[in-house]
Nucleic acid binder design. Structure first.
Length: 298
RNA sequence: GGUGCCAUAGCUCAGUUGGUAGAGCAACGGACUGAAAAUCCGUGUGUCCCUAGUUCGAUUCUUGGUGGCACCA
């Protein structure tokens, strides 16, 4: 039986180091599940695996995209599922790790088949939103997909715009394409969740931001400052330093904000993960217990 | 030392013509199906600095303290 070990947890909890231990034990490569480490040029601020760590184990989806490249949870699903079918020809156990909630679910549960939005349509609707506000877009959605209109968070412009994009693109109501069905995978999924007490996690996150600054985050951010409008750089660690470059914030304030936003992000991740009943939770120091648990499950 | 001003939520402050109080930020909780480190939503009991008084009733008025700030010496 083929197995996928999914190691997850909030940012800063200690996934990277433990994933190497597990991967080495099973002689598995590591599939990264991280929507920002996948990009080139921002390894420090995204806490990507170091060159030393990358040399120990073959990693997938680390620093492979240009910041300008489009990517999505669905592409991640497609590419990972196809990669897994290749890897499983030679291995029985594969390790996946990361903190991007939707990417993880895309693999473990799958997401619905929906066409990728045409770039021009997306830009046009966004322009309309900026000029006329959300109301005209809402009204159009109400006509094209009354069902979804009723359930969507009408204040969340991204959701509303996206639903309308799908309606216009496919000529069908967005809700008719949302099946919410869970895809059966041809492999066994074992989820390991890492968690720490909040105080401990916060302290590690704060320390890690200071470390990133020592490792050259400021310079890294400067190098990509001119690309600041890209979605790939709407990212904790960069958006705050961009405000410093703009002269809006002092450097110290920006660093405090990076720490704060990282803490908030870790909480959002935990909110998502908590709901997952398949998860087996451990403290990162329990490597021995984790290995015992895995050996039992595989 | 004298005079004046201030003292309200973790922070910055508003307010109560006397009927025990509210914003922003922070903090916390939640949603999440192709941009997700994104985007959005929800939650405010706090000795209204302490003390004594006036009053049916004081955080609000008065007395005396304490602390801070400013000016004068």
């Amino acid at each position: 039986m083929k197995s996928l070990i999914v190691l997850l947890g909030p940012t800063g909890v200690g996934k990277t180091e433990l994933s190497l231990t597990i991967a080495e034990h099973y002689e598995s490569p590591i599939i990264s599940c991280d929507s920002r480490q996948i990009y080139k040029r921002i390894p420090v601020g995204t806490a990507a695996p170091t060159p030393e760590q990358l040399s120990r184990i073959k990693h997938y989806f680390i620093e492979i995209l240009e910041l300008t490249d489009y990517f999505s949870a669905s592409r991640f699903e497609e590419e990972t599922i196809s990669l897994l079918s290749t890897l499983y020809q030679a291995k029985d156990t594969i390790v996946m790790t990361g903190g991007s909630m939707m990417y993880i679910d895309a693999i473990c549960k799958g997401i619905d088949e929906i066409p990728t939005i045409d770039e021009k349509l997306r830009r046009d609707l966004f322009d309309q939103y900026q000029q006329e506000g959300i109301d005209p877009i809402r009204n159009q959605l109400k006509i094209l997909d009354p069902d979804f209109y009723r359930q969507v968070d009408l204040k969340n412009h991204k959701r509303v715009i996206h639903a309308l994009e799908i309606c216009l693109m496919t000529g069908k109501p967005y809700s008719s394409l949302r099946t919410n069905s869970i895809k059966k995978r041809p492999f066994n999924i074992i989820k390991i969740g890492l968690k720490r007490d909040r105080e401990e996690l916060y302290s590690l996150i704060n320390q890690r931001v200071d470390l990133m600054m020592k490792q050259g985050l400021l310079d890294e951010a400067k190098q990509v400052y001119h690309l600041r409008n890209l979605n790939s750089l709407n990212t904790v660690g960069y958006k705050e330093l961009f405000k410093y470059f703009d002269g809006e914030w002092t450097l110290d304030f920006a660093i405090e904000k990076i720490k704060q936003n990282s803490r908030i992000y870790s909480r959002k991740q935990m909110t998502w993960f908590k709901k997952d009943t398949e998860m087996q939770w451990f403290h990162p120091s329990q490597a021995k217990e984790i290995m015992e648990y895995l050996n039992k499950m595989i």
